[in-house]
């Protein structure tokens, strides 16, 4: 696990604007009303695939303005930093996930046997249950919440000191920014932890990279996955008559038998 040896805070204080009447305050009101903060969070993700005992450590970046956010997991960077270049499957781009938080829409990319799909997921609903545990992450007081999402149980810590209803990967919908996520079952373990948070007082327009792409719905994607999964149950790969079934899902389960 991560060891905390050193703790450093850089605080930049901007001008404190005194309350003035009329124009100035209205301007502020309007600009503040349109969610004029932008948050940038750097997470460290450790995921373990238990069947082949593979541990992957990468950095993930979340950037949002309260309404829209973009999330990227940096597999590419960790690839070039590794001691030996080694992967059987090599994908050239980092996966990018875009959220329209208020519309409850998530745009992301996934692949089935190297065929890539741009997916619009409108069915990611998180039924959060708040629990009593608390902890401090990066000097923010966090409280625990749990939920079950697509057959996996998650424990998260979120902070209401940053009232953005967002989090890493597909997580959102809590009254504060999610700074830690943990999940463990017999297929895999995931652990996201925020390592760096940046709050800026400006509106940043976060564009949707999937705007001109051909999208399929999440349900369609699951159907295609199911079809290919069925094929993999019967397709023989060698002279001994062995098959190699696909997994039922990794972060999300697509097959629920």
């Amino acid at each position: 696990m991560l060891k905390i040896n050193h703790y450093k805070i850089i605080v930049v204080v901007f001008n404190i604007v005194k309350m003035k009447k009329t124009l100035f305050s209205i301007l502020i009101l309007l600009s503040l009303k349109t969610f004029s903060q932008t948050y940038e969070v750097e997470y460290s993700l450790e995921q373990t695939a238990k069947n082949i005992n593979l541990i992957t450590n990468i950095k993930a970046y979340l950037k949002g303005n309260g309404k829209y956010s973009i999330y990227e997991e940096d597999f590419e960077r960790s690839r070039t930093n590794s001691g030996t270049d080694s992967e059987i499957i090599s994908l050239n781009r980092n996966p990018i996930l875009y959220k329209e938080i208020l519309e409850k829409k998530i745009f992301f990319k996934d692949q089935i046997r190297f065929n890539f799909f741009d997916i619009l997921d409108s069915t990611s609903v998180f039924k959060w249950e708040i629990q009593k545990d608390t902890k401090t992450i990066l000097n923010y007081k966090c409280q625990k919440a749990v939920c079950e999402f697509r057959s996996r149980k998650y424990e998260v810590y979120f902070t209401t000191e940053l009232t953005f209803s967002d989090g890493p990967w597909k997580f959102y919908g809590l009254p504060g920014l999610i700074l830690e996520v943990y999940s463990n079952d017999n297929v895999a373990t995931f652990h996201f932890i925020a390592e760096k948070i940046k709050i800026k007082n400006e509106t940043e327009n976060i564009k949707n990279p999937y705007i001109n792409k051909e999208l399929i719905t999440f349900d369609d994607y699951v159907n295609i996955y199911r079809k290919k999964y069925d094929e993999s149950l019967y397709r023989v790969v060698n002279e001994n008559g062995e098959t190699r079934p696909m997994s039922k899902g990794f972060r999300e389960y697509f097959i629920h038998e």
Binding site: H6, I10, V11, V12, V13, F14, G83, S86, I89, K196
Partner: peptide
């Protein structure tokens, strides 16, 4: 206040392999 909050972690050498 605009903030940048960061945690410094010592570089732990972990085997990075990709899938």
């Amino acid at each position: 206040k605009e903030v940048i909050v960061e945690k410094k972690i010592p570089i732990t050498i972990k085997k990075d392999t990709l899938t």
